[in-house]
Nucleic acid binder design. Structure first.
Lengths: 153, 153
DNA sequence: TAATTTATGATACTACATATCATTTTGAGA
DNA sequence: TCTCAAAATGATATGTAGTATCATAAATTA
């Protein structure tokens, strides 16, 4: 998993530059998330870390670590499924305010895309017509990835 | 609450026409949801029904009733907050496939709007570019309602 | 009215999450 | 390098959302 190492190293570098501590366990949780194609629950992460390093973190620690990783912008929480997924922009500079998560209902794979400005503009207008001002939205949308779709056909 | 009665009666009529049974308890849960400006959790509904009719439904019953009401199209579940809200189209004929819920982060009020075709089209395209085919999405978006916004200013 | 289906009740349990206090680790300054 | 304070983690207990399962009650149908 050369790739995931690299991404985690980016995170490490970011932490050093910003006075954050990417401890061993935080690294480990982040690595697990980076390597997973689908979002993981806190307890799934716990299991995963156990098999990886033969040590069972208490739930509280997992949640604290996830909080830290979210604060740092390394992971997102999918509210719909109570699961966590690594941000796909850890290794790039590219700022992203509005994220959209496409979740395959078959294989559970998660793809994070930026919402194009046009779509956001439409959504803001839609909301304004109903008397609402949008906060930076995080969209979580179910669908079928083309891989699964082709397999079905 | 003349209005909510009327809406519940529409639901009743719909059930009669479609071989569904809107029992007393189902009616009661639906009425509570119709009258609430914000989404309610299953356990909040339980409390509400108790104060209304002095009888505490077991959690399982609440969930079963909510399942029924969802199947019938009378209520929606907000996945982000694990809460339930009455569909705003019970009393109108108007079909709606793609719903968007605007949730005020201040007062928690929920507004259900239809997503305009243009916005949907954009979202479908966005997803397709990432190798996904959308399922009929339900969008749950946080924001501030103009009432709260004006109050703040 | 009996039999069958549908709805609800009761008990127990699982998963997700947090409060709280104890312990360990880390980093900064003397 | 040692000390101390802050940050991170551990442990225990508990709260809350949701479900599995089996029992009972109510309503339909024959």
């Amino acid at each position: 998993m050369r790739d995931s190492e690299q991404i985690v190293n980016h995170a490490q570098k970011f932490c050093l530059e910003n006075g954050l501590r990417l401890t061993k366990k935080r690294r480990q949780v982040l690595k697990a998330l980076v390597e997973s194609p689908f979002a993981l629950s806190a307890y799934e992460l716990r299991e995963l870390c156990k098999t990886e390093c033969d040590e069972m973190l208490p739930p509280m620690s997992i949640y604290r670590i996830l909080d830290f990783l979210q604060e740092a912008g390394f992971v997102h929480r999918l509210n719909v499924s109570n699961r966590y997924t690594a941000c796909s922009h850890i290794a790039c500079e590219h700022e992203h305010l509005f994220s959209q998560f496409l979740i395959c209902v078959k294989c559970k794979m998660v793809t994070e895309i930026d919402i194009p400005d046009l779509t956001i503009k439409n959504m803001k207008n839609d909301a304004a017509s109903a008397g609402f001002e949008l906060e930076s939205p995080q969209l979580e949308i179910n669908g079928i990835c083309f891989t699964c779709k082709n397999r079905a056909a």
